[in-house]
């Protein structure tokens, strides 16, 4: 019983990180109809910036704050410098081009980061303990740091939910995602709003990056797997839904934790891949997505 419970808790903790990454992907997808493969690169860059701050001031919270702001700036820059230009070009390969451009950006950022910081693994110390909580005589793997991850992810989600549901900016973001032309006619500056969406996504990705790194290590391409799992989570939730991204991440995290604990450690990745295929074949709109054409 305690084993099941601790597995579930670990699943929630890793699922929270997948949710953040999925959230970043969904934010961009909603506003621009692009799956931003460079999100992993943006997260890497912001995490390295956080790492750099950490080596100077040795305070995780300041590093987290700086990394989040940096992530937002990088996201906005990517939209202004690359994605907007791309949207102006049209032609036969118009639907392939954003995919390839964000892919190129991923390569650019990860090799650029390697050029600056080197390819060796960097480690980030955790701000809180990583020894599991003890109940009676058993110690479970769930540690204060895992709790911190869950709390941070929940906080980020809550902030986004507030912004999206309660502010004018959120209304503008939803409007320009839902119907850009109408929104433009209603006086929303769609391009600017879109850039803000990219900035939000960059910030969410940065938090995900800084939260996953203390448990593993930081290298120029250490977040490729996070990108893939975030994508799977986003697809489970239905690429369009912010709540779906959260739920999808949790489902994926718990599911993978259960498989790792009870079946085999070598099956986690194939399982995630098979889940992705099954979701896409049976319920392509995801759990919470609305059914509509998928050729965007």
């Amino acid at each position: 019983m305690i084993r099941l419970l601790s597995t579930l808790l670990i699943g929630v903790s890793s699922g929270a990180i997948y949710s953040l990454m999925a959230l970043a992907l969904v934010l961009v997808w909603r506003s621009t109809r692009v799956v931003n493969f460079a999100q992993a690169g943006q997260a890497i860059l912001s995490t390295y910036i956080g790492y750099e701050v950490l080596t100077h001031v040795n305070n995780f919270w300041i590093a987290l704050l700086v990394a989040t702001i940096a992530g937002a700036c990088v996201g906005a820059l990517v939209d202004v410098l690359l994605i907007r230009r791309l949207a102006r070009v049209s032609g036969a390969s118009a639907n392939v081009r954003p995919v390839i451009a964000t892919l190129g950006l991923l390569g650019l950022i990860s090799s650029g980061v390697g050029l600056i910081w080197g390819n060796d693994l960097k480690r980030i110390a955790t701000p809180v303990g990583t020894h599991g909580y003890t109940f009676g005589h058993t110690t479970i793997p769930f540690s204060p740091f895992n709790l911190l991850i869950v709390a941070t992810a929940a906080l980020v989600m809550a902030i986004f939910a507030l912004i999206f549901q309660r502010t004018n900016l959120g209304l503008a973001l939803r409007a320009s995602a839902f119907a850009p032309e109408t929104a433009r006619l209603a006086g929303v500056r769609v391009d600017r709003t879109r850039t803000i969406g990219w900035a939000f996504a960059g910030a969410a990705g940065a938090v995900a990056g800084l939260m996953i790194t203390p448990q593993s290590a930081l290298a120029p391409n250490s977040m490729d797997l996070l990108l893939v799992l975030g994508f799977v989570a986003a697809v489970i939730g239905g690429l369009d839904s912010l709540i779906g991204a959260g739920i999808g991440g949790l489902i994926l995290g718990i599911g993978l934790a259960l498989i790792l604990e009870y079946v085999s450690t070598s099956l986690a990745f194939p399982a995630a891949f098979i889940v992705l295929i099954i979701v896409l074949l049976i319920r392509p709109q995801g759990l919470l997505g609305k059914l509509r054409g998928r050729d965007a």
């Binding site: 692009v34 799956v35 639907n95 995919v99 893939v228 697809v235 891949f273 295929i277 050729d295």
Partner: peptide, 15 residues
């Protein structure tokens, strides 16, 4: 189509 296929094949390449 499009990004769905790209993401699925990306997952394949990583895993």
């Amino acid at each position: 189509s499009g990004p769905y296929l790209a993401g699925t094949t990306l997952a394949l390449a990583v895993g």
